[in-house]
Every structure is written in structure tokens, then in C-alpha cells.
């Protein structure tokens, strides 16, 4: 891990150059340019708001559109970093066969690219906060830490997935399906408070309720989304009770994921 961090520092210029290339290429001939990047969370927000008007989802004292947009921000960032990260090695086959640099540069580049798009989404969020007359509090300083944690989670998936994808392209096919399933298992459409209310307060699943809630929070994105909404919209600190199960899971898996990636890296050029 230490050597990895050193590598990141050493190859920061390369990562920056590759990420810049990704962004430039994607939007070069598009009139709206990088604005397309924020289209996805905006569209989803509108659809969810529309759906909510039929089914009715409690959103507490925060207006639903901004609550779901604040959930979509970390979610879309995570989802896109993970899926781009998984494809990043195979889509750079030409480079891998021709030149050497540590291969973790590719998943990291995918993430750096998405980080730029996240930054633009933040501008939209700020605009909405102005519209709803919400002032950021001191707790907004938690945001960098939350984003960093999201990156770690996405990298955990990217490293393992990207390496496996070199051998079995099934991974890149299965991942979008798995990720969209995971979205329904994360508090994106509905707030976490709703899950908490059902399971902990109302004990809806009887004696399994507590365990089910822990299982739910094993998904790191549950804690992340909730924490993001807390610090940005509600003026509250992150809820560590919902964060730690997912964090433990991530910390346990990340070394394995990275180890697998580094081990598989040796054969990328031969197999890809």
C-alpha cells in the first residue's frame, strides 16, 4: 500500500495528463461540452421526483429534489468511477502492450476523470441550495473526507474488477447490472432515515430487524450517502453508526483487491 501511494505521487503527472485526455476526448466535438457530465444526476433527480409524486416518500424537512440530488452526487461518482475503473485496463490495451508504468494508473485515472465531473455537479448542488435557501454549515468541511472514502470504495471494486476483466470480459458485462441493483440497495431514491424507521423503530422484520439493518449498512454507499446529506443539507455531523460496518468491510477487502491486481498485472500484456 505504501509503495502504491508513492507510485501515485510519482505518476501524478501521468494520471493528470491521461485524465485530461479522457475529458477532452469525450467532450471535444460536443457543443455542450462537459455539461453533459451533470446530465445524468439531473435527469435521475427529475425522474425520482416525478415517481415520488405518485408513491410518496418521506423526506423529512429537506425538500425531496435536493435530498435525492445530494444522494445522486456521491452515488453517480461511485458508480461511474467503479465501472470506468473496471474497464480502464482493457480499454487501454494498446498502451499496456507497448509501454510500462504501474498499471494502477488506469483505475486511478478513471477516478480522476470522474472527480472533475463531480466538481461540476457540486456547482449544480450549490445552485439548488441557493434556490432552496439552505446555508452550508461548518460540517460541510467533512465533504473532502467523504469523497475520499468514496474513492477508496470505488477503487476496491476497480482493482479487483479491472484485473479480472482482463481474463474474463464477463465482468464488464455484469457490473452495470450489479451496480444498478446496488442503487436500489442504497438510500438514493429514499432516505436512510426511512430504512432506520422501518427496521429499528418499527422492528418491521421482527427479531431480524437489527441484523438486517447492519447488513444494509455493510454497503459502504449507505453510510456515504447519508453522511453526505447530513453534512451538506442538514447541518449535522456524519452518522458513524451507519458508516462503520461498510468501512470495516472496505478496509478488509481493499488489500486483497489491490494484491490481486498487482499479481495479475504481470500477465496483462500477455493476456489482454
Amino acid at each position: 500500500m505504501a509503495s502504491s501511494t508513492k507510485n501515485i505521487f510519482q505518476y501524478r503527472e501521468l494520471i493528470a495528463a491521461l485524465a485530461w485526455k479522457n475529458i477532452v476526448i469525450r467532450y471535444k466535438q460536443a457543443y455542450l461540452g462537459i455539461l453533459w457530465a451533470v446530465l445524468k444526476p439531473l435527469m435521475l433527480m427529475m425522474i425520482f421526483t416525478l415517481v415520488r409524486s405518485f408513491v410518496g416518500i418521506e423526506s423529512g424537512d429537506v425538500p425531496y429534489p435536493i435530498l435525492t440530488f445530494a444522494a445522486l452526487l456521491p452515488w453517480v461518482f461511485f458508480q461511474e468511477s467503479a465501472s470506468e475503473g473496471v474497464n480502464s485496463v482493457t480499454s487501454n490495451a494498446a498502451l499496456i502492450k507497448k509501454i510500462y508504468f504501474p498499471r494502477e494508473v488506469f483505475p486511478l485515472t478513471a477516478m480522476a476523470t470522474k472527480l472533475v465531473e463531480l466538481a461540476i455537479s457540486f456547482v449544480i448542488l450549490a445552485g439548488m441550495m441557493v434556490y432552496y435557501k439552505m446555508m452550508p454549515t461548518i460540517y460541510a468541511f467533512w465533504v473532502p473526507a467523504i469523497v475520499f472514502y468514496t474513492m477508496i470504495v470505488a477503487l476496491t471494486i476497480s482493482f479487483f474488477g479491472a484485473a479480472l476483466n482482463v481474463y474474463y470480459r464477463d465482468v464488464s458485462q455484469a457490473l452495470p447490472v450489479a451496480l444498478s441493483l446496488l442503487m436500489y440497495g442504497s438510500p438514493v431514491i429514499y432516505p436512510l432515515s426511512l430504512v432506520h424507521k422501518k427496521l429499528i423503530v418499527e422492528q418491521a422484520a421482527g427479531e431480524w430487524s437489527e441484523r438486517l439493518y447492519t447488513l444494509y449498512t455493510l454497503n459502504p454507499m449507505a453510510g456515504i450517502i447519508d453522511a453526505f446529506q447530513n453534512v451538506m443539507l442538514k447541518g449535522l455531523p456524519p452518522d458513524f453508526d451507519t458508516l462503520y460496518p461498510g468501512a470495516i468491510l472496505t478496509i478488509v477487502i481493499l488489500p486483497f483487491s489491490y494484491w490481486y491486481f498487482k499479481r495479475a498485472e504481470n500477465w496483462f500484456a500477455d493476456v489482454i
Binding site: 491521461l18 477532452v24 498502451l95 507497448k98 509501454i99 510500462y100
Partner: peptide
């Protein structure tokens, strides 16, 4: 400096100048 295949990192969408910077970064 591996010149195993020149232009391995040349990207068609970028201009020549942009490619110089990109390829230089790839070559370290």
C-alpha cells in the same frame, strides 16, 4: 525509453501539440 512502436499513445482526437504533452507524460 521504449520505442517499441512509435505513436502507441498518440490519440487521434487530440491535436499534435496536445499529443506531444500526453505522450511525453506516458513516456515519463
Amino acid at each position: 525509453a521504449p520505442l517499441i512502436e512509435v505513436g502507441a499513445g498518440v490519440n487521434p482526437e487530440l491535436t499534435g501539440r496536445e499529443n506531444i504533452f500526453l505522450n511525453a507524460a506516458i513516456l515519463g
